[in-house]
Each structure stands twice: as C-alpha cells, then as structure tokens.
C-alpha cells in the first residue's frame, strides 16, 4: 500500500511522510534545513572550542617548532599536566611569531630561543622576567660528498666562508626563527652577506628546509634534535661541522605580563616557569632522547631561578 503523499501546501511536516515511500523535493529541503538547524544548536562533539587565553585550567604556550618537532614537549608536558591539573595548549611557531603572540596577549607563556630579542621583550615590559631553561646546539649539515670541503672544521664562520666561496647550494630558513637569527649571526661573523643563486631563502620550518636541502643535496644549519629525528626517517645528509661555541642555542622561558586588556593566565604561567626550571623537570629534560636517538638532545641549565610563588 504505497501511495504518494502530496506535499502539504503550508510546508508543515506531517508525520506521515516519514513512513511512506515518496518524499517530495520540498520535504527533503525542509528536512535538511531542520537537521541543519538542530545540528547548529547542539554543542559540537569532539571539536575543540578555541578557548580564551585566560581559561583558568588551560595554559597557552607559544614555542619554537624545534621543541615541538623534536618531541621534547610531548615527553615532558604530561608531567606538568599531572602535577598541576593545568592543560597546556601548544602553539609551535617561529620565535618571531611566538614573541608576537605574547605581545598580542594570545599566549600566556613563551619558550623560545633568541636571547637578545627575549631580553628586549622583557625591557619593553611584555614579560616581567626571563629564565634560562636549557640549551641544545646547532650543526651544519650537508651532503656526504661535501663539495665545499667543510667536514670536520671547528669554526662555523670559516665553514660558511668556504660554502660561499665554493658557491655551494645553501638552504636558509629565512623566516625570522631562532635558527635563522643564529645563521645570520654566523654569516656576520664570517663577514659575508649571503646572496646569489647558491643561497636559497626558503621561509619555511626546519623540517621543510631539511627536506629541501636533502632533495637538492645542499647545506643548511639545523638544530641537532630536529636533524637527528629527521635523519632516522631517511635524510641523506650528514653532520659536517659541530661543537663551535657560537652554535650553542640557549632556550628561555618568559611569562607574559598580565594586563587589563588581555585575559592572561598569569598564575598558570608562573606555575609553568617554576615547574620547567625545577630540578625534577630539568632531570627529565636531560633524559630525553637517550633512549630514542641514542644521544641527549637538550642540556638543562636553569639555575634554580624561580619566578616567584
């Protein structure tokens, strides 16, 4: 007994058509509108609401891609969340953007590595203080053939000079990251303004730049942790120069100064600073990488400097 229900003129849904076969186009349209309206009213399931920076039990950490890409944060943050009950939202960007996020009040605490700019950040009043956390180091990597012949050199600046002289392809981050700032410093020390076809300014993250160097068999400057992590995935590049003091890379932590305009979760930020500089966390940082990569990646050096209570 299948009969067609004519579409009701008023457009009201008469229950019958749910149980009979034919649904007019009009019914379908109305029904989809209703479903849509209902869906719009329901709280989203499984979708994370973008929380305001100040939600009490949530902390927004702006940090460099290196701490995140290397896996360090995934390794240590669960300890913080367990101890304090504060959930951490990580925004992994370049140091430049991390500082900009702090200035705009879009982050509560920063973990970055560009000392001079951090100190300037404090001087401008955006953070009450800055604290040493740890350091890792940079390495100059390149193809095994090493066309510029820099393998084993002890001075990063001298190695850069050779690369420039040989016009060997060099891929630069070119993105205002801590790594890029370090690279610029080494070029400066070498007395060279890098430009020309051999110098490619990519403006991308460490992972992408390592890919580009790998594809083109070019040189680049990388932090050791990201390089080791990526080498295990099959990068055809080698560490050629390491150990020069200029290659050391100090990380600092900065709580963002609270103000009336922005809802900064200052309490949680201070808790984070105290936690990451505490002896236990410092030990945790030191242990990272030994099991996975066979070498320590970050060297903690907080001097028990607590940000306050």
């Amino acid at each position: 007994m299948k009969h067609r229900i004519p579409p009701t003129r008023s457009g009201r849904l008469d229950g019958a058509f749910f149980f009979h076969g034919a649904m007019s186009l009009r019914h379908i349209v109305i029904l989809s509108f209703l479903l849509f309206a209902v869906a719009a009213c329901l709280p989203p399931v499984g979708v994370e609401q973008p929380p305001a920076a100040g939600t009490r039990d949530e902390l927004v950490l702006a940090t460099t891609t290196s701490t995140y890409d290397s896996g360090l944060l995934d390794y240590i943050l669960p300890d913080f969340e367990r101890k304090t009950g504060i959930r951490v939202r990580v925004i992994a960007v370049g140091t430049g953007q991390a500082l900009a996020l702090g200035k705009a009040g879009d982050a509560d605490v920063l973990l970055v590595h560009a000392r001079e700019r951090e100190e300037q950040f404090v001087a401008e009043g955006y953070a009450p203080s800055r604290h040493d956390v740890m350091y890792n180091d940079f390495v100059i990597v390149g193809p095994a053939e090493d066309p510029a012949g820099i393998r084993g050199m002890t001075s990063a600046a001298e190695a850069f000079k050779r690369i420039a002289q040989a016009q060997a392809l060099f891929v630069s981050r070119g993105d205002d990251s801590g790594t890029y700032i370090k690279e610029q410093k080494i070029w400066q020390e070498a007395g060279i303004t890098p430009q020309g076809d051999w110098y490619e300014s990519a403006g991308q993250g460490m992972g992408a730049v390592l890919n580009m160097a790998n594809e083109q068999q070019a040189y680049t400057l990388s932090d050791r942790s990201t390089f080791l992590a990526r080498q295990r995935e099959g990068l055809d590049l080698e560490i050629l120069v390491e150990g020069d003091p200029v290659l050391f890379n100090q990380y600092g932590v900065l709580p963002v100064t609270p103000d009336k305009e922005h809802d900064i979760n200052y309490g949680a930020a201070i808790a984070f600073v105290n936690w990451i500089t505490s002896p236990e966390t410092q030990e945790l940082i030191a242990s990272y990488g030994i099991e996975q990569f066979g070498s320590q990646l970050f060297f903690p050096n907080a001097r028990g400097n607590q940000a306050g209570d």
Binding site: V93, G94, G96, Q97, A98, L99, A100, L101, G174, D175, D176, E200, S201, A202, G203, Q204, A208, M212
Partner: peptide, 28 residues
C-alpha cells in the same frame, strides 16, 4: 606551491606563500 615550490625568495615565492611566511614571522 608551498610544497613543490619551496617558497624560495626570488625564485619560487608567490603571494600566497609570502603571506604564510609573513604570518609565521609575526609581520601581520
């Protein structure tokens, strides 16, 4: 274009990849 071009300054940087770069740098 970001993936296959690489956003290299003066070689493969186009408007959209430049926007991504400047956003990352915080040069809003």
């Amino acid at each position: 274009v970001m993936i296959v071009g690489g956003n290299i300054a003066g070689k493969t940087r186009v408007l959209t990849t430049a926007i991504v770069l400047e956003t990352r740098k915080g040069n809003f």
